[in-house]
Nucleic acid binder design. Structure first.
Lengths: 229, 229
DNA sequence: CGGCTGATTGAGCTATGTCAAGGGCAGTGG
DNA sequence: CCACTGCCCTTGACATAGCTCAATCAGCCG
């Protein structure tokens, strides 16, 4: 559903985003082309294999960037939250999306057309360098996760993931994510994830509330995560 | 060991590298600061945690970019060959190396000081965009490998890796890589890698010559690799 | 109340990791 | 040139983390 887009210059998540590197007039230039949509849980923002039409910026909510692995398992590449961009990689490389973006929680997301993004990139060096640095950071985290998935046991990966998700769900105070998604995030299956979380519960590291997970002992989880490093 | 650096403009691997996007005069500008070294097997080009002093460009040989995972296992993030750059990510993000680079085969490698690289980036937009696209491509491959390691069985990953390495070892015609490295590349241990390769041998997919691996049936390997997709 | 979706638990299996031993090739020194 | 040494490859036996399949349970909605 389309809604009125908040002006970038007044946007409260701008300080979390690279748009903070832009001047007021540059932000003004984005307004005419910008659109904004409200999405519901499990809705696709875009599908693997399609071509990008522009850049998405999350105003509210959580989005999982994922792809389908062997035997249909879904691997979550990253979880993006408020202020973060989605879909820039294909945009920069000029290729089709190599992954899909799906709404985890109800979300409000702005869209900047490709041409506006391109011209901003050319005009504003700081923004362009910021994009590059972001790309580098994402690459670094992808490489770390690759090594983790290869050699770190599920127990450690789940502990790590919970701590990371705790930030994304900071406002709510609890992590309300489907077990299947949690499993996809650390590269395992639902049942294994459930068992590990259940272990954490009996060790008083977390509590289960309804279906949500509350972190009780971050240090303990960190210790579990680092046990295998 | 330092050796005389070949001039970039006459370099035979330039067409494989992003320097192909540079003008003759831009290449000339690199000459004064450029150095070139010959390295032997297992020598470190740089260590995880140190700061980059410039960009490396492979003139000859193979280099593994790797990091140490849980319980001391080495994960190979990528294998770089002739014409490819190494160490650009930390250079672009201004951070320390988050991985190490180690020579696989005897190699000859040029080094461009950070400042020269920076000024080239600013002066030549095509080169700068080329760097960005390269970063995107590396990120995409890292994400694919993450999903593979998470859900694709070792057998499929080794088949895939052999096909990929076959390109890197194209000249030699055989893949002469230590089993431990091969294992590190697909995220498993030496013994498992050996067993799978030994299976491939009995299925006539590969042949073992001395310690090297010769691909006999690329299509067969591709089928094995895709079996699990 | 019935049906649905997602969480949980159990039982059993298998791929893969671990540990240990042997074998062969390559380089070194006499 | 030969013997020595050490590294790497290879193989076997064994242990187990984590996957699969299947059944049950707990909310939730119409």
């Amino acid at each position: 559903m389309k809604v009125k887009a908040p002006a970038c210059k007044d946007c409260k998540v701008r300080k979390n985003s690279l748009f903070d590197l832009c001047s007021p007039s540059e932000l003004e230039n984005l307004e005419p082309g910008k659109t904004c949509g409200v999405y519901t849980k499990n809705q696709f923002l875009f599908h693997e294999g399609t071509m990008p039409s522009g850049l998405y910026c999350i105003n509210e909510g959580l989005v999982k960037v994922c792809k389908i692995g062997s035997s249909g398992n879904e691997q979550i590449l990253r979880i993006a939250k408020k202020g973060e961009f989605i879909g820039y990689r294909s945009l920069l490389s000029g290729t089709s999306y190599n992954c899909s973006a799906v709404i985890v929680d109800k979300a409000k997301i702005c869209h900047i057309p490709k041409t506006d993004f391109r011209s901003l990139m050319h005009r504003n060096i700081a923004f362009q360098e910021g994009m590059t640095k972001m790309l580098c950071a994402i690459l670094e985290s992808a490489e770390n996760r690759m090594t983790d998935i290869a050699y770190k046991p599920v127990r450690g990966r789940i502990a790590e993931a919970l701590l990371l998700l705790n930030e994304a769900y900071h406002e709510a105070g609890v992590i309300s994510m489907a077990r299947k998604d949690l499993a996809g995030f650390v590269g395992t299956v639902k049942e294994t994830a459930i068992r590990v979380i259940s272990d954490f519960k009996s060790e008083n590291l977390v509590a289960i509330e309804k279906r949500s997970i509350r972190i009780l002992d971050p240090d303990g989880l960190a210790r579990v995560s680092n046990l295998y490093d």
